[in-house]
Design a protein around this nucleic acid. Structure first.
Lengths: 206, 206
DNA sequence: AGGAAAAGCGAGTGAATGCTCGCATTATAA
DNA sequence: TTATAATGCGAGCATTCACTCGCTTTTCCT
C-alpha cells in the first residue's frame, strides 16, 4: 500500500533539444494549472500544450506529481531568491525600516504570479509538502538571524517565538491581501496595510 | 464544458432511518478524509464505511463534492459557534482581555479536530470556496463589531484595516501553531504564544 | 390487512486518465 | 558514411471511480 510516486527524473536532459523539452513541460504545467485548475491538469494535456508527446514527458518526469513538484520548486525558488536578497539588504537597517521592507517584499512576492500562487495554495493536494516545510524553515532561519543581530534594539523575548509570530503574521497579511482582495487593491490601500502591519510588528518587538 | 456539480440533496431525509443514513455518510466522509486523505476518498469507499450502499448515498448527495461540502459545513459551523459565543462573552471586556480570549479560542478551535482541519486546508481542491468566504466574512464582521464598540480605547485607525490585520494574524498564528508544531506543544509553549500574540495585537490597537 | 411511499441495494457502465512500449527520428562521433 | 546513442512519438492498456437503474425491503397510513 502507500505507494510513494517517484519525484526524480528518470533521465537527465543532456542535449539542448531535450533541455528545451523539459522547460516546455514545466512551463506548460504551470500554464494549465493557472488556466484550467489542478483537476483539468492531465499529463496528456500537459504534453499537448508543451508540443511534446506523452512518451517524451515520461522520459523526464516519472509521474504527474514530479511535474507539479517542479513547478512548485521553480516558484518557491523565485520567491526565496527575493527573500534572501532582501534580508541581506536589510541586515544593517534598524528594526522599523527592516520590518517595513520585509512586509513590502512579502506582498510583492505574492504578486509575482498570484494566480499560480493561489492554485498552489488552494488546489494542490498532497505533493510539495516537503518543499513547503523547507521553504518555511529557511525563511524562519533568515529572519531569526536578523533578529539575533539586532537583539539590542529589542525587548527581552524568545527569538524563536518572536520569529514564528512575525513570519506567520506578515505572511498571512500578504497572502490574504493579494488573494482575497485582488480587486480593491489601490496603491493607497497597500501603503496603509504596509504602514499598519509594520507598526504592529515593529511595536511588538520593541 | 465547465460542468458545475450540484450541491443540494436530490431528496430530503424525512424518516428517522434516513436521517441516520445521512449522518453516517457525512461521518464516514470525515473519517476517510482524515484517515486516508482526499485522494483515497471515493464514493464507493464512503458508502462502504458508512455501512450503506452507493445507491443510497446518491439518494441524498448528488455528488461527491456535496458530501465533502457537508463535512466542511459541519466543521465550519462547529467553529463559528464557538467564535460567536466567545465574541458575545467578550463584548464588555477591555481590549487586552478580549484579545487574549480570542487568541486562546482561535487555538482551541484549531484543536477541535486538527487532522480534519489539515485535510480541509491542504487537500481539498476546488470545493467549499464559497463556504470559506462566508466564514471569513462573518468572523470579520463580528470582530469589527467589537472594535466599533470599543473605539474609545483604540487609537485612530480604519476599522476594516485593523480587523483584517488582526484576524489574519491571529488565525495564522493559531493555524501554524496547531498544524506545524503539533509535537512540541507544551502547555507552557501555548501560554507563551498566547501572551505574545496578545501583546502584539493589543499593542497594535492602542 | 394492504397499498403506497420512502428507503435501500449493488452489479454494472462509461468516461477519464496515468502511464507503457515498440518503433521512428535526430544527433554524435568514429 | 555508418554505427550508436539520445530523443521523440502516440495508440492503447489498465485501472480507477463517479454515478445509474431496476429491483427489493421497510415504514407509514388508513
Amino acid at each position: 500500500m502507500a505507494r510513494k510516486p517517484p519525484t526524480k527524473p528518470r533521465k537527465n536532459a543532456l542535449q539542448e533539444r531535450s533541455r528545451a523539452t523539459v522547460d516546455a513541460l514545466v512551463e506548460a504545467t504551470a500554464r494549465i494549472l493557472v488556466r484550467e485548475g489542478f483537476e483539468k491538469t492531465s499529463t496528456n494535456r500537459i504534453a499537448e500544450i508543451a508540443g511534446v508527446s506523452v512518451g517524451s514527458l515520461y522520459q523526464y518526469f516519472p509521474s504527474k506529481e514530479a511535474l507539479v513538484a517542479a513547478v512548485i520548486e521553480r516558484h518557491n525558488e523565485e520567491i526565496m531568491g527575493i527573500v534572501r536578497t532582501t534580508l541581506n539588504e536589510v541586515m544593517d537597517m534598524p528594526i522599523e525600516k527592516a520590518v517595513r521592507r520585509l512586509v513590502t517584499v512579502a506582498i510583492e512576492a505574492h504578486r509575482i504570479n498570484p494566480e499560480l500562487h493561489r492554485v498552489l495554495a488552494e488546489q494542490i493536494p498532497r505533493a510539495g509538502k516537503l518543499d513547503v516545510e523547507a521553504f518555511n524553515r529557511e525563511v524562519h532561519s533568515l529572519v531569526r538571524a536578523y533578529f539575533e543581530s539586532h537583539r539590542k534594539e529589542m525587548r527581552k523575548i524568545d527569538l524563536d517565538v518572536a520569529t514564528f509570530i512575525c513570519v506567520s503574521s506578515i505572511e498571512a497579511v500578504a497572502h490574504n491581501t493579494v488573494l482575497n482582495q485582488a480587486e480593491m487593491l489601490s496603491e493607497k490601500m497597500v501603503r496603509t496595510l504596509v504602514d499598519e502591519t509594520t507598526r504592529m510588528v515593529a511595536g511588538f518587538l520593541r
